[in-house]
């Protein structure tokens, strides 16, 4: 029973990480109909830069703004170099372009931080707390709270500020948003900055729980896409439920089957959802126009 609770907690923490990355996919998909296939690299960059800054200044909390900024810069770069030219040409070249930018980023990260996985110092005690009889890592609680706080902050910004409403308007109808005087190109750039900042933030959240390295992001990025699909690319908070489903499925598989198989349930779920309910469990199906 205690074991079960413990797995539950780890699953939820992991699920929240997926939710944050998936949330980032939703942001860019809403405004531009595109998403960053190199999102996992944004996460790795966040974790690695965080690691270097923590080494320098010794404070985990102060690194967060630096990491968010780094993620945002990466996002702007991806949008300018990979997405905007393709959107202009109305081609799907952005898929290959964002993959390529991800590969380049990963390579640069390998050259700076090396190919080996590094240990990220935990900002809080690594001794487990005892909650309801289960031992829970304090960092897991930080992950859950941090992830929810980030998503909540972005949602609040989107709902309350006029700029957030401009994002929602661009998402709903890019052309009509232009007629409202909204510079939709800028909004798309901004959504990429926000999306990659979220991924980078997820990077420093998860880093103390796992190891940090240039290749830590690829699998996370792909599974977060599964979460975005399960939750629906258009449904705001579906990602939290999607993240929970996947996080729990994964930790349980890892515990009861084999850690080698832990990536499988998410990917199989992705295939199944797309084969049978492509709009996601919480998304709406669009009417096709002829």
């Amino acid at each position: 029973m205690d074991m079960l609770l413990q797995i539950l907690f780890s699953g939820i923490a992991l699920g929240m990480i997926y939710a944050v990355i998936a949330f980032g996919y939703q942001l860019t998909f809403a405004t531009s109909g595109t998403l960053n296939f190199g999102q996992g690299e944004a996460l790795a960059i966040g974790a690695l830069i965080g690691l270097s800054v923590v080494d320098r200044i010794g404070n985990y909390w102060l690194t967060i703004p630096v990491v968010l900024l780094a993620g945002a810069i990466y996002g702007i770069g991806v949008e300018r170099l990979g997405v905007r030219p393709a959107l202009k040409a109305k081609s799907e070249g952005w898929i290959m372009a964002t993959i390529a930018l991800g590969i380049i980023m990963k390579n640069i990260a390998e050259n700076i931080w090396g190919r080996d996985d590094l240990k990220f110092p935990s900002p809080v005690s690594e001794a487990p707390l005892h909650l309801f009889g289960a031992s829970v890592l304090p960092m897991e609680i930080i992950v859950i709270v941090g992830a929810l706080a980030l998503m909540l902050a972005v949602e609040l910004f989107n709902r309350k500020s006029i700029y957030g409403k401009a994002i929602a308007a661009t998402a709903a109808d890019r052309e009509a948003a232009g007629l409202m005087g909204i510079n939709t190109g800028q909004v798309i750039t901004f959504s990429y900055a926000l999306s990659c900042a979220a991924a980078a933030f997820a990077g420093i959240l998860i880093a103390p729980l796992t190891l940090t390295g240039a290749s830590m992001g690829a699998a996370l990025g792909l599974k977060a896409f599964a979460v975005a699909i399960i939750g629906g690319l258009t449904s705001g908070l579906g990602v939290i439920i999607g993240g929970l489903i996947l996080g729990l499925a994964e930790t349980f598989t890892g515990f009861y089957l084999s850690t080698g198989y832990k990536d499988v349930p998410g990917l199989v779920l992705l295939l199944l959802v797309l084969a049978f309910k492509p709009a996601g469990l919480f998304g709406k199906t669009a009417i096709k126009k002829v």
Partner: peptide, 10 residues
């Protein structure tokens, strides 16, 4: 190697 590969794709 990978960066060159990525630039080639772009």
């Amino acid at each position: 190697r990978l960066s060159i590969f990525g630039l080639l794709i772009l």
